[in-house]
Design a protein around this nucleic acid. Structure first.
Lengths: 336, 336
DNA sequence: TTTGATTGGGAATACGTATTCTAAGCCTGT
DNA sequence: ACAGGCTTAGAATACGTATTCCCAATCAAA
């Protein structure tokens, strides 16, 4: 049944192909008479317009692209990833957009990704995640009318649009929360020292401390790698300090769980002897003992902001902020 | 820079547009001379072919569609979902396919989904997940040359292609494992009674029991709703039976965790007094106390089989099995 | 009635590519 | 030297749609 084009419908309804197109696009100036004939034929034969032809003609495909800068296999158990897609799907869908997902495989150079999706016009716009590149080519792409939005980094100058969660604010908020509960010695377990994430949150942590008139103590700052092991080891070292901390802020729930383990081994009650806060509010939090208080990065809001910004960009509407910052929330459970 | 079509490149390289196309498609019969001229122009201007035009012309878009029969928001924390996408991305990518994801929103009738993606030729083929429909329209679609593969149900007759995990076999395997550890009274906590999943796995459970010469005891069979609560309640009821079971097979990790909770409250040691096995091998398993033994549905294999079957279908290669069954595995931890 | 404006709808075209058709040039063999 | 095959590449076309252009018909006004 590949013979279903407007031409066929036109022949059946005894009108021109142009009229069929007009009817389908609800052009007001078409006689009710012909309109009905066309509609009847469309219904009878189950005609549906060919999106490929429409895209070529209309110069847009109503499709958004999502590119993850990681190997596909690494996405398998990542809750961030599924939440991201879910939200893009939801809000893009509201505006009638489809979603095309791609992950950077090793064979694909960065260049290939841009081109494959943007320059080939396979999608109307792109959401880039965890891109490691500071490439100024990006800025040029945007200028050339290939709209895209970055999630996760906004230090690329004004050429690109971006959305990020408020790393500084989130860490500050968590630290302030611990301070408000009377903690004076608060430790920080970051990710790898080089990461923007680690750096920004450290800054927030530190500024909360200093705002409270406390001295920043490098001995209380550790760097892990987001693994449970690294959380465990960092916490173990912290808890054996002579002046041990009474609270620990870990940049990931899994590391926080490692810290819980260490506390348990040191016979320290959580949160009485040592309070622990994680990051990301993963499903795990409710299932560990005690349930983990966690800073929730608002992924749905992040994705929504990126999606709507991108669609505004695509459709030529003015965008209010080039760099949106999404605030985080503390989800209080038992560990702090 | 929208003026980048083959025509422009052709003018620059002083050849015809056809020649540009030939060079790009590595047509052997083009003079090395012109070839170089074209390549130089392409390189200089960063020309990339327009995928929309290619799709229209070539009658395929090298894009797979994935349709989830659920509200997008419900996908946010579903590990099944992300694992699925990851694997499709990986194996589809190997064959040069992109992925378009869609979730059935309420406003979308089933019909709209097929049409929006398949009949409009937006994608070359579709993977349908958790489709609740037994629609024979599906079979007709396949016959009409709109290739798609179902994940999760294969009782639709021969009209459709499908991939499913081996529900019967998985439950049988888990039951046999418990039997081999000496258990004689094994309970079963299913999902809602109406589900194929519940039914098939119950069958596997039952057949293992009977193969071992044990009587099937309906008192040991409960039906939950995949929530922790329902797992807890079911287990509580089971453990207060006068002839209480020494092992519980729960159809989901979260229900199994509920059962763990119930055992704890009954002061029963796991696995010594009561062994517990979950399903799905979710990340949670490693984090509960004791770590949960679980039957792992092999999602990557499932997705891979579906993807490769679909691509074979699309590219007109013969498909060996219309209904592929993916075996499951037991991941042994501490609870059984 | 005649004219001018208005409306309805068919014919033609463009979107950018891949491919078929065709013709020009060149070789080879007689 | 000439016919017939082979190679090379340009011209033309098709993919299916949306839209512009234009003409015929209708209607209102004079």
């Amino acid at each position: 049944m590949s013979e279903l084009k407007q031409t066929e419908i036109a022949r059946i309804a005894r009108v021109s192909q142009a009229t069929v197109s007009r009817v389908l696009n609800e052009d007001p100036q078409v006689n009710e008479d012909l309109r009905q004939r066309v509609l009847a034929a469309v219904e009878a034969y189950g005609y549906v317009p060919n999106a490929r032809a429409q895209s070529l003609r209309a110069q847009h495909s109503h499709t958004l692209g999502l590119v993850l800068h990681r190997a596909p296999s690494s996405l398998a158990n990542d809750p961030f990833f599924s939440a991201l897609i879910a939200s893009i799907l939801e809000h893009g869908g509201k505006h009638g957009y489809h979603l095309c997902v791609d992950a950077a495989r090793a064979v694909h150079s960065r260049r290939a990704i841009y081109e494959e999706l943007l320059r080939t016009r396979r999608v109307d716009g792109l959401i880039l995640v965890e891109s490691e590149t500071n490439d100024e080519r990006m800025a040029r792409l945007n200028e050339q009318g290939f709209p895209f939005v970055l999630i996760g980094r906004y230090e690329l100058g004004d050429g690109v649009y971006s959305v990020d969660n408020d790393n500084v604010g989130a860490a500050r908020m968590a630290t302030e929360y611990l301070l408000s509960r009377g903690h004076q010695r608060i430790a920080y377990i970051g990710g790898p020292a080089g990461l923007v994430l680690t750096r920004d949150r450290l800054f927030g942590y530190r500024s909360a401390l200093e705002a409270a008139g406390l001295k920043y103590d490098p001995a209380l700052v550790m760097f892990g790698d987001f693994s449970e092991q690294s959380g465990y080891r960092s916490a173990r070292d912290l808890l054996t300090l002579t002046k041990r901390p009474t609270a620990i802020l870990a940049l990931d729930d899994v590391m926080a769980i490692g810290a819980l383990q260490a506390a348990k081994e040191h016979k320290l009650a959580v949160p009485k002897d040592v309070a622990i806060i994680g990051f990301n509010n993963s499903p795990l939090c409710s299932y560990v003992e005690p349930a983990l208080t966690s800073v929730a990065v608002d992924i749905p809001a992040l994705a929504r902001a990126a999606t709507e910004m991108l669609i505004d960009l695509i459709e030529g509407r003015p965008v209010s902020t080039k760099h949106a910052i999404i605030p985080a929330q503390i989800v209080k459970r038992e560990s702090a």
